[in-house]
Amino acid sequence: MTENQLQNWLVNIGQNIIWISGKLLYQHWFQLKCLGLENIPQDRAYIIAANHVSHLDGPAVIAAQGKHFKNVYSLAAKDYFFNRPFKAWMCQNFFNMICFERKGNFLNSLRSCQKIVEQNKVILFFPEGTRSITGELQRLKLGLGLLVLHLNVPVIPVYIHGTYQALPKGRHFPKRHPIYVSFGLPLDFRHYQTKQNILDTRQIQQQIINDVYIAIAQLHDNLVGKVNYGNLET
């Protein structure tokens, strides 16, 4: 066995351990509940765009959507997740994170994302850019609009509830709290491709993120209402 083969084998074993233990943790400790799984495409690539309040968000979405997390790649901030060599290697190889610069050149990330969608895999993106310190949905960044225009794949809006209570920004250890993940209907933005001769790119990106924001906000209202009134079917 070559060194590369050994490394790939170890990474594969590590990912399987993370996948199984992570699902068990979310299902039994956090009592993970999912809505809208029928909205997830089964035969094509797509972008998941979710609200972001906690480090628990990414694993919660990945555990909820059902596909092995080998098929899900998360866009992660370079300044936070890739600021040290070993940490960067772990994030890239064991957690399928794609490095992107929050305040810099996004083109390298786009190239990586293009290769992923060509393999019919999933990209998880938090378009707020950082965790909300209040738990409320923040303004979305234009990077999502750029990603959508470049990749031309549907967007699945997602709202996550409960991770803020379990592990908000600033807390180091989570507490036990139910987590809910709601998947919305796919958003198809192909009609914006025809507007590129009418509107400038920034205007189109703004319209895209406005549409995604509204979809996530609607999921929030629906999910939180069900949780508060005890009408959530499990």
Rank of each mutant, 00 (worst) to 15 (best):
E3N: 09
L10C: 13
I13R: 02
I20S: 07
E38Y: 02
R44M: 15
Y46A: 10
I48Q: 09
A49S: 10
H52W: 08
H55T: 14
G58A: 15
A60I: 03
A60E: 14
A60H: 07
A64H: 01
A64Y: 01
K70I: 12
A76N: 04
A77D: 01
R84K: 15
A88N: 03
C91E: 04
Q92P: 04
F95I: 00
M97L: 02
C99N: 14
L107H: 14
L110T: 00
E118K: 15
E118V: 04
Q119T: 08
T130H: 13
R131E: 11
T134R: 11
G135C: 13
L137V: 15
L144K: 13
L144W: 03
L146T: 14
H150N: 13
H150G: 03
H150F: 02
V158Q: 07
T163G: 00
L167G: 09
R171N: 09
H177F: 03
Y180G: 04
Y180D: 02
F183I: 09
G184T: 05
P186T: 01
L187P: 07
R190S: 15
T194H: 12
T194Q: 13
I198M: 06
D200S: 01
R202W: 04
I204Y: 10
Q206N: 14
I208L: 01
I208C: 01
H220C: 03
V224L: 09
V227K: 07
T234V: 14
